[in-house]
Design a binder for these strands. Structure first.
Lengths: 208, 208
DNA sequence: GTCTATATTAAGATAGAC
DNA sequence: GTCTATCTTAATATAGAC
C-alpha cells in the first residue's frame, strides 16, 4: 500500500522541483509550503532552516551518485592504461542511474548541482567537497593516470575549467534544451547532452 | 588639472570594485554609497535604479572590448584559412587592452562578466546579447570557418560549453588564483589564466 | 544635487495555542 | 505535528526639505 506522503516528503518533492526551476535563492519558503499544501512553519519544524532543506534535497541524489562514481572509477582503474574519454565516460552510468532514484532524476540532479554553484550557496560547495572528498580525489587521480604528462598547473586549471563547463551547462540546461528544440526541432534529453559534453571535456583536459 | 571626482563617478568606481568582489546581488546600494562617501539617494538620482547602475558599470568595459574584438576577427578573417587557436587568440589582445581602460581592467572585466551570468541578472544577458549581436555573430562565423566540419548541433553545444567555461572561470577567478598561489606558490594574473584557458577551449571546440 | 526620513516589500524565523 | 500570528531584518525606492 502506498502510504500518503508525509509532510516532510511533500516538502522535499516540491522544494526539489522549485529549486531546480528557479534556483535556491529565488525560491522562498512561502512558495514551497503553499505549493506543497503544508504550513509555512513546518519547514522549520522538520528541517530547522532553509540551508538544511537545501542540503536534504541534494542529499537524496548525492547518496546514490557518489558511491556509484567511486565504484565505476575503481573498476576502470583495474586497467593499467586508461584513456581520458574512459574517465569521463565512467560518470555516465552513475548519472543516468539517477533516473531510478526519482523520475527525471538525472536532469534534476544536474540542474541542482549547477544551481548549487551559481547561486550563492557557499555552504553547499563546502558540504559536497568535504563530505565526498574521497570520490573527488579518486577522480583527479584517474585523470592523471589517463594523461600523466599533465603538469600540476595544467591539471589544476583544466579540472576547474571542466567543473565550470559542467556547472554552467547544468544550470542552463533547461534554457539550452528549449533553444535547441526551437532552433532545429531536436528534442534534447540528459542522455544527448552527455553525448555532446563528454568528448568536449575529454578533449579540453587532454589538449596539446 | 585633475578635477575632483563627481558623485556619479565615485559611485561607478566603488560599485565596480564591490560588484567584482561580492557579486551584484550581494552588494547593496547602502554598502556602495557609504563606502563612496555619498548619500544613499544619489544612486537613484543619478542612475534611476540598481539595474541601470549595473549596466553602466559594465558599459565602460564593453564599449572598449566589443569593437576591439570585431576588429581583431575581421582582420583574422582576411586569411582564407584560420585555425581554432587563432580564433580564440584573437580575443586575447582586446581583453588585455582593458588594462588601459582602468587599472587592472582585464581581471575586473572578466570577473564582472562572470558575475553577470552567475548572479541572477537576466537583464544583463539580454542587454549584452542584443546590443552586441553583430560581434557575437562574427565570432560564431569565425569558429565555423576554422572548423567547417562542425555540425550545427555540435557547434551549438560546444559554443555554449565554451561560454560556460569562461563564465565560471571568470566568476571564480579570484578564488582560483588564491588557491593556486597557496597551493604551489605561483602568482596568477589575467595573462596566465588566458594562457591556460585558450588551448583548453580551442581543443574542446575542435574535439574529435 | 544632496540630505533625512520614511514607505514598501519580502524574506527567514519563531512563539505559543491547539 | 500543525496552525495562526507575529517578530526581525534588510533591501530598494521615494518624498520632500534644504
Amino acid at each position: 500500500m502506498t502510504a500518503k506522503l508525509k509532510t516532510k516528503d511533500k516538502i522535499l518533492d516540491v522544494a526539489e522541483a522549485l529549486f531546480a526551476e528557479h534556483g535556491f535563492n529565488d525560491t522562498s519558503l512561502r512558495t514551497i509550503t503553499s505549493k506543497a499544501g503544508v504550513n509555512l512553519a513546518s519547514v522549520n519544524y522538520h528541517f530547522g532552516d532553509k540551508k538544511t532543506l537545501v542540503r536534504a534535497v541534494l542529499d537524496r541524489y548525492l547518496e546514490a551518485f557518489m558511491p556509484a562514481v567511486s565504484d565505476a572509477l575503481i573498476t576502470l582503474n583495474l586497467n593499467s592504461n586508461i584513456s581520458m574519454n574512459q574517465v569521463f565516460e565512467a560518470l555516465r552510468a552513475p548519472l543516468m542511474s539517477l533516473n531510478h532514484v526519482r523520475p527525471n532524476g538525472t536532469s534534476r540532479f544536474m540542474l541542482l548541482i549547477g544551481r548549487g554553484y551559481t547561486d550563492v550557496q557557499g555552504h553547499l560547495r563546502w558540504f559536497i567537497t568535504t563530505r565526498y572528498q574521497g570520490t573527488l580525489a579518486l577522480f583527479v587521480e584517474s585523470v592523471l593516470k589517463a594523461n600523466p604528462a599533465l603538469s600540476r598547473e595544467e591539471l589544476f586549471w583544466r579540472l576547474h575549467f571542466t567543473l565550470g563547463t559542467c556547472v554552467f551547462t547544468m544550470a542552463s540546461s533547461q534554457a539550452l534544451a528549449e533553444i535547441a528544440r526551437n532552433d532545429y526541432g531536436q528534442t534534447v534529453d540528459a542522455q544527448s547532452v552527455l553525448d555532446q559534453l563528454i568528448p568536449y571535456l575529454a578533449a579540453g583536459v587532454s589538449a596539446e
